[in-house]
Amino acid sequence: MSVLSRWKARLRVRRNLLRAARRRHEANPTPESRRVIDDRKEQVAYAERVVERHDRDDRPRIVNLDLKPREGSQLSPQGTLRAVTGHYTAGPVDQTDEQCEALLRGYDRAHKAKGWTMLGYAFAISRAGTIYLGRPATAIGAHVLNQNSGNVGIVCNGTTGDRPTAAQARSLRWLLANAHTDALPKAWRVDLRGLPVKGHNDWMATACPGSFKRMYTSKGTKR
């Protein structure tokens, strides 16, 4: 368990203890019960500061590509979320974040050339672990034929034979646990917790996402 996970667990315990102290004080208010509440509040505040600091340190770099829909096209609102689907790009891996961004912008142009509204994926993760924001996650994507509604797409640069990095796995794990928080802009703020995470080839016959599938379906954890 990471330091952040341990402190989050401690914070939950301390909040429960504070709630219990308040209930006891309401039932039988005394100077001692008030002192206990004040002590519990200080303990909660300290744990919140520690969690905030570690969460900030643990958070991957996040880059909004600020892509625009193709002229004359319009995004459709996302339905009730039902799945997350992992992909590879079937192209080169990125060696730097600058190259990753250039590749993603190229795929955005290619998707628009097909008549799509914009890049089909909501999120991309570079080999360095940077999370890129593509198509808004609150809009229906374009990444699995006939299965896009309620399905959030995540992609990594690479093709058959390429493998994910440890940094990509960590960032995927963080994204699945934190996409609903204000760490992300509102248009990408969706609750991915508890959703099944599949590979593209779980929906249809395709090689995608190749060796990245293990990372996706294990949700970034080792197994």
Rank of each mutant, 00 (worst) to 15 (best):
A169T: 00
A47S: 12
R189Y: 04
R14T: 11
T130Q: 03
R22T: 06
A45Y: 04
T117M: 00
L192W: 02
K114V: 10
A139S: 14
I154Y: 03
Q147C: 04
D38V: 11
A9D: 07
E52I: 09
Y216I: 03
A110C: 12
V63W: 11
H180E: 15
A9H: 07
H25V: 15
G91D: 12
E52L: 15
L192K: 04
T206E: 00
D39G: 09
T206K: 03
Y216K: 04
G91V: 05
T85C: 11
Q78G: 11
N146W: 05
A128F: 03
G220W: 05
Y121C: 06
A47Y: 06
A169Y: 05
R70C: 05
Y107W: 11
T80H: 11
R35C: 06
D108F: 03
G106S: 07
A139G: 05
Y107M: 15
D182A: 08
M1W: 07
A137F: 03
D55C: 04
D39R: 13
A179E: 03
G72Q: 09
H87P: 02
A207I: 10
D66F: 13
D97L: 09
H25E: 14
R163N: 02
L17E: 07
T160Y: 08
H180A: 15
M118D: 07
G210S: 01
E52A: 12
V84I: 11
K112D: 14
N151M: 00
R61S: 14
R70N: 05
